[in-house]
């Protein structure tokens, strides 16, 4: 058995890969090794995997309904029956947090899917094209960056109307500018390199150069940045929820849960503290993961 494992390792680390797949897997394996050498990163990864599992199996894991409560059971402290206690409506907080993980994931994933590609596209095009295109795109980016994120998101939600979808859109609109900045900076460092000149000399169109040769170079630093931003996104979503502009009751969104718990914060601390803890742990998980990814994906580390 260990013999097989050994040779598989050797196959992955081979200096002479025999196929495209082997080369790619070998590279991924090296990144994984760098990642796995970092204990904290593994903890972060474990937290995120746990979040995914909890979200996937919420109906199985949750002991009670997340929305229907028994008013007679209201504001019970944590105990055997309700591990995290109940809120003012008598709903089980644990169940709400478990279902809430779906909303958190929903927000985080949608924002990442919306904001990262926009930032990547704007940044690489601005960086590669230069001239007036760069000027226009960079100024637009600057304008977005000039406002604090939450305030800008607030303005957008106010315009679009409250609700979780609108919150996602608002957060996405406010989070792409930093990604554009990163992608542009990265593009500027490689656009005059010989290997890009070589591709130009093959007759590649600017679009092909940006999409196939420059974007792959920016993606790893972007992934790192997005992962590190996840915590911020969760907090912004929670902030909007807290202000009543994000997810609407009775949705078990963590930020909204804290908001409804703040009325009893002194006597029934668990109503606000439990979702707060969930936000804290998940944010921490994303941060640790991002740090680990930075070390694992750093193109300079993978180079010479």
């Amino acid at each position: 058995m260990s013999d097989v494992a050994m040779s598989r390792r050797e196959w992955l680390l081979s200096e002479r890969p025999q196929s495209r797949l082997q080369a790619r897997l070998g590279r991924a394996y090296m990144s994984w090794q760098r990642f796995a050498a970092n204990r904290l990163a593994l903890i972060g990864l474990a937290i995120i995997i746990m979040l995914l599992l909890v979200a996937a199996f919420a109906p199985v894991l949750a002991p009670y309904s997340p929305v229907a409560g028994d008013l007679r059971q209201g504001l019970k402290p944590p105990g055997w029956e309700h591990w995290m206690g109940t809120d003012d409506q008598g709903r089980d907080i644990l169940s709400r947090i478990i279902y809430g993980s779906r909303l958190t994931l929903y927000v985080v994933v949608l924002v990442a899917i919306l904001a990262a590609p926009i930032g990547l596209l704007v940044g690489t095009v601005a960086g590669y094209a230069g001239g007036w295109i760069d000027t226009v795109l960079s100024r637009i980016t600057d304008i977005f960056l000039a406002f604090p994120k939450l305030i800008l998101a607030l303005a957008f939600v106010a315009a679009l109307g409250p609700g979780i979808e609108n919150a996602v859109i608002a957060i996405a609109i406010t989070s792409w500018p930093p990604y554009a900045r990163i992608a542009r900076a990265e593009t500027l460092t490689v656009r005059n390199s010989d290997y890009i000149a070589a591709v130009r000399l093959m007759g590649a169109s600017p679009a092909r150069i940006v999409v196939r040769h420059i974007m792959p170079l920016c993606i790893s630093s972007l992934i790192v940045r997005v992962t590190l931003d996840m915590a911020g996104i969760i907090l912004t979503a929670a902030g909007l929820g807290f202000l009543g502009l994000g997810a609407q009751p009775p949705l078990p969104e963590w930020g909204a849960m804290i908001a409804s718990g703040r009325r009893f914060i002194l006597d029934q601390w668990w109503v606000a503290a439990m979702p707060g803890m969930a936000i804290l742990i998940v944010s921490l998980g994303f941060n640790l993961l991002g740090d680990g990814l930075r070390d694992a994906l750093d193109p300079r580390g993978a180079g010479q």
Partner: peptide
């Protein structure tokens, strides 16, 4: 571009670092 091609000075800078 099919009739003229170029080889650059720095062998470490002329190959895309992420491509086989």
């Amino acid at each position: 571009y099919r009739s003229v091609q170029m080889v650059f000075q720095d062998p470490y800078g002329s190959l895309h670092p992420r491509q086989t």
